[in-house]
Design a protein around this nucleic acid. Sequence first.
DNA 1: TATTTATATTGCAATATTACGATATAAAGA
DNA 2: TCTTTATATCGTAATATTGCAATATAAATA
Lengths: 110, 110
Amino acid sequence: MGITKTEHFSEEQNELAILAKAIGHPARIAIIQHLIKVNSCVCGDIVNELPLAQPTVSQHLKELKNAGLIKGSFEGNAICYCLDEKGFHKIRGFFNQVNTYLENKKNQCC
Amino acid sequence: MGITKTEHFSEEQNELAILAKAIGHPARIAIIQHLIKVNSCVCGDIVNELPLAQPTVSQHLKELKNAGLIKGSFEGNAICYCLDEKGFHKIRGFFNQVNTYLENKKNQCC
DNA sequence: TATTTATATTGCAATATTACGATATAAAGA
DNA sequence: TCTTTATATCGTAATATTGCAATATAAATA
């Protein structure tokens, strides 16, 4: 089918999945890493940085933006992109829970 | 095309993407959350917990296992699953970097 | 206004993912 | 051994994702 049974899961579970899925592509990891390195940049810089055509990069940027992981603001005729706390803040809580659990567990099973 | 240009990205970028992608489905988020709650359980428990058929759950478990996010050990004729530190440890470094960056940045752009 | 520059959108082909019924496998117990 | 129980695998249909050429849009500049 290819269709996820979204309606059977909680809103939180769906939100976390959308965020993780948006991060789950090497090009989008590379974009996030580049934005950390240069703080902010225009789309064209990322096109030069990645081995992908401009429409493909534009599409990846759109997905990151939809997930709330980056944001863009107009700067002349270009668009300046940078990381968006909103998305990363949401997913941070989940990983904090996992890490806290793993630290206390100390492998008592499996 | 649907095919990711894996070879053009670094090994680290591909690894992180695989981990995030594995987490990026509400059923797999639910499985992780359930394992945190009950520490460890057999596949059948998860089938009862989720609104999905047994083969579908089995497939999700396989993906989480391949990514190194869960591990399973035989227990009689059942298999006991629990979280695997390995995968979560790898992705933790990435989110630590992002969070450290975001805390120091204080919104000076976009 | 015409051109250039920067980005987004459309359309499409190739591939991947999701879900599940049917079936296989493998250990446990009768 | 036969049956039950638990999980995995196969096959397949429906849908989603990835990537790009072609094209559209929109601001800047000549």
